[in-house]
Design a protein around this nucleic acid. Structure first.
Lengths: 135, 135
DNA sequence: TTTTCATATTCGTATTTTTGAATATATTGT
DNA sequence: ACAATATATTCAAAAATACGAATATGAAAA
């Protein structure tokens, strides 16, 4: 990995992000953090499936984790990945107004994670305060 | 395609760029243009292989073409894809100084295309004059 | 320490992507 | 019209990826 050439490094990163579900995960986490079970209810997919993608994203350096008791919270390791995704959307013809914005994870109905249960105040979820720049 | 959601549009674009050889092609074309046979000699791959990737990139809106006699010249449809690739490199841990720069295609030894033969002056190849911005 | 809950891992298969080989098409020059 | 050259397309095998099912691990609570 260390001595991969530029094309390889860049394309690995791009390929990692080149999956709609992984993008969904990233958009859901946004500038906050989320545990697996939160994503499970928010995205309505099986736990194992989510874990697999989270692992891939973490191995690729896109996500970082924090353990708190039995929960493991995932967050973006660098808010620039968000800008990269937005830039890709623009290149793909998405209108400026239809681009996603960085936001904290939304409370989800059936979710019982500490955030959705209100055990951690919402504002503490906001880890990145970067607002994607407009041209 | 028209009614794909954001994740799908963005991830399709990212996946398209998520291939080291396609990145190589894009870096080689740079801010100029190149025919298939130029890429063939420059990248030392079979013509069919190159054509396939070029088609994929054109279908994905990354490249545009211009026909001149029996030659077909490919160019970036938007220099921002170059910035996207650079941004991906940065996120992948590439040092700023090791990032590729937009440049016109280099003359290649065994290549017999109009550019390499000097039939079209080099400076005419420079289609995009955008210099990737530094922070 | 046993149970429970959150998350990780392993495994198998369906699907997609990659890539080479062969072949087709289009343009130019003779 | 024919040959030569540049590029596109089709086909198939190999490789990689996606994704579900089952199972394992690890922390907390009883």
């Amino acid at each position: 990995m260390k001595n991969y050439n530029f094309e390889r490094k860049a394309s690995d990163l791009l390929a990692l992000l080149g999956n709609p579900f992984r993008i969904q995960i990233i958009l859901t986490i946004g500038e906050g953090e989320a545990c697996v079970c939160h994503l499970e209810t928010a995205l309505n997919k099986r736990q194992a499936y989510i874990s697999q993608h989270l692992m891939a994203l973490r191995d690729g350096g896109i996500l970082e984790t924090r353990r708190e008791g039995k929960y493991i919270f995932y967050r973006l390791s660098n808010p620039k990945v968000f800008e990269l995704i937005r830039a890709a959307g623009l290149l793909a013809g998405v209108q400026e107004k239809d681009l996603p914005m960085l936001q904290i994870p939304l409370q989800v109905n059936k979710c019982v994670c500490p955030y959705c249960e209100g055990e951690i105040p919402m504002f503490e979820k906001k880890l990145h305060s970067v607002v994607p720049e407009n041209e």
